[in-house]
């Protein structure tokens, strides 16, 4: 087995550059009339939410293509994207809670989008947990891809049901979000740059994460192919008559 020797550094550089640009713009863009400085949280919250959706969509594409082609490359894409998606969904939820607490005084509102994001977080957390249960790449890929498709197909129905549920029970007006009106062009630019920067970060992380999955699969293959004691080092044959 030949180990992949080329180490790609540019994804890390791209991540760092995107973060610096996005951060600088978020700090110099003007304050909002309604939200004040708190509007700056939007420049990371919205791109993180956007990335979560992109990542889960890629998991769906990877899972479906794997089921049709049986090419493990697609399963790796699905797996990498799911992990990044769970990370960004978690980040979106935490940032949303911080924004909510600072603006409306509550950590959580039963807003349809927030509820849906929380549900998605658990769906893909389950997906990652499922992947951890087996080492065999092919069995893991088949199982995970069925779940990847099931999860993605259910999400529109979940979305629909949650939105519908919320329209029947309007939340109290104190916790209704006042979405910041984007009056200044610089605010819009900052938001767009944020989304672009996070997309670059997503692509870079995907490249590194797929590389990792590839290496881990190689490692599993080596472990299974070489002659090793069946129980490994965990079990030691008791020595008869040995002193304690």
């Amino acid at each position: 087995m030949k180990v992949q020797t080329r180490i790609r550094w540019w994804p890390w550089a791209a991540v760092a550059l995107s973060l610096v640009v996005a951060f600088t713009l978020s700090m110099i863009s003007p304050r909002d009339d309604v939200q004040g400085e708190l509007v700056r949280i939007m420049y990371i919250h919205v791109p993180a939410a956007w990335l979560a959706y992109v990542a889960f969509f890629m998991t769906f594409v990877g899972s479906l293509t794997y089921l049709l082609t049986k090419n493990l490359r697609w399963d790796r894409i699905a797996a990498a994207s799911a992990e990044i998606g769970v990370f960004f969904t978690g980040l979106t939820l935490v940032l949303g809670m911080i924004w909510g607490k600072s603006t409306w005084g509550v950590w959580w509102t039963w807003d349809a989008r927030l509820t849906l994001t929380a549900i998605m977080f658990f769906v893909y957390l389950g997906y990652l947990a499922l992947r951890r249960t087996t080492d065999d790449p092919v069995a893991r890929a088949s199982r995970a891809s069925v779940l990847g498709v099931l999860g993605a197909v259910q999400i529109p129905i979940v979305h629909f049901s949650v939105v519908w549920w919320r329209t029947l029970h309007q939340p109290p007006s104190i916790v209704r979000p006042d979405s910041p009106a984007i009056q200044e062009p610089l605010m819009l630019i900052t938001l767009i740059v944020g989304v672009v920067a996070f997309t670059i970060i997503y692509i870079s992380l995907m490249i590194k994460r797929i590389e990792l999955t590839h290496l881990e699969d190689q490692l599993t293959e080596i472990e299974h192919s070489t002659d090793q004691p069946v129980a490994g080092e965990a079990v030691v044959v008791p020595e008869l008559g040995a002193r304690p």
């Binding site: 400085e37 949280i41 990370f87 911080i98 607490k101 600072s102 990792l212």
Partner: peptide, 26 residues
Amino acid sequence: EWGWVAFAYGVAYGSFFLYAGSIALR
């Protein structure tokens, strides 16, 4: 307000570096 913004950016960038670091480490 700036305290909240710093808190949010700290959480975001902090967890971000942790995650990227964990990928590099693995």
